[in-house]
Amino acid sequence: MSSPHSSVATPQATRLAPPLAGARNYPAQKPAEVYLFGTCVLDLFFPEAGMDAIRLLEREGIRVHFPQGQSCCGQPAYTSGYTDEAREVARAQLALFSHDWPVVVPSGSCAGMFRHHYAELFHDEPATLRQVEALAARTYELAEFLLEVCRIQLDDRGSPIKVALHTSCSARREMGTHVHGRSLLSQLGQVERVDHDHESECCGFGGTFCVRMPDISGAMVRDKTAALAGAGADAVVSADCGCLLNINGAFEKQQQSLRGEHLASFLLRRTGGKSDGVQS
């Protein structure tokens, strides 16, 4: 998606919605090397999911680079209205990906930040904007990358299990991660995906929303955990660590045994890969 400003003649011209996005074109060839952008929440709270993502990519014959200078995509400040601070943090990430390798992000909302919101942040810096647009074009959410670029073939080695999939809202709406996640799970012969009540509804995380509006957020996560627990699933899987932090925290507080797991860890384990297993 290009900048919302690029289609208008003057800054004050009445805005039209961006044109309908067509299906994304994926490279015909699997790349030899990729960058992994780990995301800040995963870095601190779910590092094993990041390692499992790396192992999945390596198993596909891809060399993974993890720029040690990476931190956060800038989203927390951006969604809180601190646009200048978000822009500077975004600028620091932009400098990390000097080769034109794909950037794989094991979190849909952070991938969406790269793909859709950086252009807004840098709309009046033409040189940076070009760099941002190039980055957006090669940014993939992990599930999307495994499915559409690696064209991964998963061989399920686990025993029969019922799984509920929760997709983060921005991952769903900005990256289509729910479709990719379902498609990957459907490759696993012994895995039955069960829908939970109001599957597409937000878990109540919403970044700083969960602490700014604790009553509403709390009501949302209680409903989400009740729906997941009531779905008859043996496991809960999600590709977004913000949601996992929220959902798992609520499960723990409610003294339920169910915990959500990152999709990367689940896929790796089901297909005979060895996870670090350092569950937080």
Partner: peptide
């Protein structure tokens, strides 16, 4: 004033 310099769609 808010539309000054703009072209109608």
């Amino acid at each position: 004033q808010s539309l000054a310099g703009t072209t109608p769609i």
